[in-house]
């Protein structure tokens, strides 16, 4: 049975719709990310789960109980805010203890749990420190400890890593994943960073303009994007228009001088989407010319002008010679590396 269930949840502010028909079932222990550009409705959805916004319609259920009717203070969710939202006048320990105080946890137990929570996030010994005198990473850890110490049924993370610098962010991602795995806390992360979403989540909910574009595992959304938006938002991709041609009962998919057997059911014009790192250079295939070649350490980045428009190709720097700028090449890829969508005028 799912722990948290959102059923056709929507939110509009006056005439503007922020979230439309959002349905999702989260199982216990799962790590889910809401991924999308700013303004896509991911934070609004999180706030509705947290209770800071009331949904305009739809239901939210936690362990079968209606969450919408419950005031935010009673929901028992742990939240880490983008700005960390630490209480500036309280020490790290007092911050972490606040939620336990509200739950009237006896003093001895409270102290013990605060100590353990701070140790869990690697801040043992920082109990008496005020947030003002801590680094961004340390504040982030206090915020996490404060949210976890109340043993929340669901942990909500609102862009928690976006204020950290790149190196620290990577370290925190690994640590966050480990802590979440160890505790088994069901977690929802709101982020606009696809790498973060992919490296942390069990499943990703890709959102755009208030709507869910796709729900799936990181591999699914990366390799079988359900829409052009998903394909483009999760890393670079190449898209070519192709025709399904039937000769002598055999259907073939044709794009310029490239062709492959068409999968069953494909007709008319379709869009082929292939990730740049899945393309290699061969002796026959989609013809093109290299317009630029950039060395990026562990790989080469090529920009090509092909029969079907511009394309990017990424080749591992495996020591083999690579084509030069201006050279004519043929692009090839495995059938399993492309995804097909019926072309819609868009």
């Amino acid at each position: 049975m799912s722990l948290l269930e959102l059923d056709r949840v929507g939110k509009s502010f006056g005439p503007n719709t922020a979230v439309e028909e959002f349905s999702l079932a989260v199982t216990k222990g799962e790590f889910i990310s809401f991924l999308g550009p700013s303004g896509c409705g991911k934070t609004t959805t999180l706030q509705m789960i947290a209770g800071f916004l009331d949904p305009s319609h739809g239901t939210i259920r936690l362990e079968g109980k209606d969450l919408v009717a419950m005031p935010p203070a009673k929901r028992g969710l742990g939240i880490v805010f983008q700005s960390y939202a630490l209480f500036p006048h309280m020490t790290a320990a007092e911050n972490v203890a606040f939620g336990l105080e509200m739950r009237k946890v006896p003093r001895d137990e409270r102290d013990e749990r605060v100590r353990k929570a701070l140790a869990l996030v690697g801040l043992a010994g920082y109990e008496g420190r005020h947030p003002r005198r801590m680094s961004g990473g340390q504040q982030q850890r206090v915020a996490l400890a404060r949210a976890l110490v109340i043993r929340p049924s669901v942990l909500l993370l609102d862009e928690p890593l976006s204020n950290l610098d790149a190196r620290l962010r990577e370290d925190m991602q690994i640590e966050l994943r480990q802590i979440q795995r160890n505790l088994g806390t069901t977690t929802i992360l709101v982020t606009h960073d696809q790498i973060e979403a992919m490296s942390l989540s069990d499943r990703i909910v890709v959102m755009s303009k208030g709507k869910i574009e796709q729900i799936g595992t990181p591999q699914q959304v990366y390799e079988q994007p359900a829409s052009a938006f998903v394909a483009q938002f999760l890393g670079k991709t190449n898209e070519f228009a192709a025709e399904v041609e039937r000769t002598a009962g055999l259907a073939r998919l044709v794009a310029g001088s490239w062709s492959a057997p068409a999968p069953a059911g494909a007709t008319g014009t379709v869009t082929i989407s292939v990730r740049p790192e899945r393309i290699s250079f061969g002796s026959s295939g989609l013809a093109g010319r290299i317009t630029s070649r950039i060395f990026q350490g562990n790989h080469w980045l090529f920009q090509c002008d092909t029969e079907c428009g511009p394309a990017i190709v990424i080749r591992q720097n495996d020591g083999q010679p690579q084509p030069d700028q201006g050279e004519t090449v043929h692009l090839i890829w495995q059938d399993s590396d492309m995804s097909l969508r019926a072309s819609v005028a868009a």
Partner: peptide, 9 residues
């Protein structure tokens, strides 16, 4: 995205 002030009655 910033937190929005709720405008409910």
């Amino acid at each position: 995205m910033s937190t929005t002030v709720s405008a409910n009655p």
